[in-house]
Amino acid sequence: MKNCVVIPVYNSPYIDEVIKDALKYDYKIIVVDDGSDKKVSVPDDVILITHKQNMGKGEAILSGAKKAKELGYNFFVTMDADKQHLASEIHKLIAAYKTDSIVIGNRDFQHENVPDSSKFGRKFSNFWVKLETFKTLGDTQSGFRIYPTNILDLNIKNKRFDFEIEVLALHSYRNGNIIDVETDCYYPPSDERVTHFDKVKDNIRLSLIHTKLVIQRYLLLRGILWR
Score class of each variant (00 low, 15 high):
185 C>D: 01
165 I>P: 11
93 L>E: 00
21 D>R: 08
117 S>I: 07
38 K>S: 13
22 A>L: 03
37 D>V: 07
142 S>G: 10
128 W>H: 14
193 R>G: 01
4 C>P: 09
94 I>R: 06
126 N>R: 06
187 Y>S: 00
104 I>K: 05
30 I>F: 00
62 L>Q: 03
144 F>C: 09
141 Q>Y: 14
129 V>Q: 10
140 T>F: 00
120 F>G: 10
170 L>K: 13
70 E>S: 02
29 I>T: 00
184 D>Y: 02
49 I>A: 01
79 M>G: 03
95 A>H: 15
187 Y>E: 11
98 K>G: 01
149 T>C: 07
162 D>A: 04
143 G>Y: 04
139 D>H: 12
11 N>F: 03
67 K>E: 08
220 L>Q: 09
195 T>N: 09
194 V>T: 14
72 G>A: 00
177 N>Y: 03
180 D>A: 09
33 D>T: 01
119 K>A: 01
158 N>C: 11
108 D>Y: 03
122 R>K: 07
178 I>K: 04
207 S>I: 13
3 N>I: 02
59 E>T: 15
32 V>C: 05
72 G>E: 08
173 Y>P: 14
21 D>A: 10
191 D>V: 04
76 F>W: 08
72 G>W: 04
132 E>Q: 14
15 I>F: 09
153 D>E: 13
186 Y>L: 04
41 S>Y: 11
185 C>A: 08
148 P>Y: 01
82 D>E: 10
197 F>K: 03
5 V>H: 02
148 P>D: 03
100 D>S: 08
46 V>D: 04
55 M>K: 15
87 A>T: 00
144 F>T: 08
20 K>L: 13
187 Y>T: 11
224 I>Q: 04
95 A>D: 15
149 T>F: 00
11 N>E: 08
87 A>L: 07
149 T>H: 05
7 I>F: 08
72 G>P: 06
4 C>L: 03
11 N>T: 02
207 S>P: 10
64 G>P: 00
133 T>M: 00
50 T>A: 10
113 N>G: 11
178 I>G: 03
104 I>E: 06
147 Y>T: 00
128 W>K: 06
217 R>L: 07
83 K>W: 03
192 E>W: 02
5 V>W: 06
86 L>V: 05
227 R>K: 14
96 A>T: 12
51 H>L: 05
132 E>H: 02
79 M>W: 07
62 L>T: 07
211 T>Q: 10
181 V>Q: 04
143 G>R: 02
41 S>Q: 12
37 D>R: 14
205 R>F: 01
76 F>M: 10
92 K>L: 09
59 E>M: 15
227 R>E: 13
68 A>Y: 08
93 L>W: 11
165 I>T: 15
108 D>Q: 04
210 H>Y: 13
141 Q>C: 15
161 F>I: 15
50 T>W: 04
216 Q>S: 11
139 D>Q: 09
184 D>R: 14
38 K>W: 02
104 I>N: 06
30 I>M: 07
106 N>G: 09
139 D>C: 08
133 T>P: 06
137 L>I: 09
167 V>N: 02
205 R>H: 11
51 H>N: 14
215 I>G: 08
145 R>D: 01
